[in-house]
Design a protein around this nucleic acid. Sequence first.
DNA 1: CCTTGCATTAATCAATTCAG
DNA 2: CTGAATTGATTAATGCAAGG
Length: 498
Amino acid sequence: MLLEAEQEKLVLKTAHYKQQKRLLEREFHTLSKPTFFQRIFHTKRNKLLQMEDQLQKITMKIKNEEKEWDLLQMRSNQIRMELKKYRDSINNKCKNQGLVIPDDNYWTNSQSAYEYRQLHTPWLTDELNFERGLLFLKGMKVHKLFLIFNYKAIKSSLRLLNYRSKLDLNQTEHRMWLQHMWGVIHLITPVISTTFASVRTMYKGVGRDFIRYLFIDEAGQATPQQAAGALWRSQKVVVVGDPIQIEPVVTIDRTILGDIKKFYGIEDRFIEIGSSVQSLADAANPFGMYNNKGQWIGIPLWVHRRCLNPMFTIANQIAYDNKMVLAIKKQGKSEWFDCKGVAVNKQFVKEQADLVAEEIYQKWENTLNAPDLYVITPFTAVKDGLRKTIKKRLAELNVPKKIVNDLTRSSIGTTHTFQGKEADTVYFVVGTDQNSDGAANWSCSKPNLINVAVTRAKKEFYIVGDYDRLSKKQNYKSIAENVDQVIRPNTNRSTFHV
DNA sequence: CCTTGCATTAATCAATTCAG
DNA sequence: CTGAATTGATTAATGCAAGG
């Protein structure tokens, strides 16, 4: 821009000089026929010489300006080339690095543009993302060194953490110790995850606004009063939840709730049956939209990114009225292992555990790494049985001890334990037999337990249980309908399509 | 019936130290 | 040097309270 302005100025200047030159030439011409007197006194001659001199100067000037103009032209071309180079490199980045620039197209009001916006983060390149990851790792290293070098101070804080119940919270000094202890703990792990039920005991004696940020997940299933203690201790709060999931169950009697409302003059929406942390956060959110039912939803997220298709469809059917949109439209794997037996301990069926152990062993054999999988069950008795059986079997098969321990400790558990987590592969072991059918009915009485179990699986989902008995039950029915195939291990893996 | 977290105790395992 | 004893750490088992 600047360069162009300068060029323009130069053109004007050159034109001015050329005009001057023309005028001089004309004057020179008219003067070139000297009169008699002039010839005598040489006055004209002097004037002529003078003018000739002037003309020469102007011609020089014009030449200089022209030279400068050429120079500028060259530079301008150079800059244009450079500009093109940068443009090309940005375009390349867009193509190779997944960089999305929000131009006019990006904001178009069409379905495809909407989906594109939901699926892509603007201004982010793969490289930047990668470097950010590396930076995080470096940060973790620094953090680790910090912890190592301050081992002694940290150790005493950790001891205090274990014995914090021995503190006398009526003494100001003890309360101060507690504060400092939590300060150190938060330094070690800046993020602490817990449940509302345990905030009361865990952060007992910790005062108002001590926590910088409180993130509430699954807020649709918590009553506002459950969150009160955590909210009071926090400066800022981010609430994440799913309003289409089941509402929290309020155990307080309706009339008592009414009395509380009347006595304190509280609006209905704060304490109504069915109001949750999520519904209050939605109400407070200026950004959002109304759904079909006329509910105000704060900043809705419509794209499901975790699961591939059989799992997504099952969850969409049983929990989301088929309203969600799938981000990665790829097909995963899913099978129903029709495996039944007698429940030996409450709902635990040994045959199912043996089957899962063999499956895990095969997965391990193929990769020789700890496979990324969860074994999920609705019942603790089944969880314990699975842990024991699988640990024993894998040890027999000479799987390295460390892998076995890690796997049994962190990859086998109840549905509740795995809420908010994910793995490539999930084995959902239902357990139960004829005599414990009530427990099976309990597990599918609401969609959320099965919804959580199914949506933990990113790529592959296998359900292990009595097909004939379970597939007739609500919610299990959806799994039976969408699963790729039913496998009956007893009959030599003969398969049939549903 | 079912879950969770928390506290306590028993059991198991690995590493280190010690006696002969 | 070798096997036994000690120690420290983790894991399993159990009971309890709170809650659906």
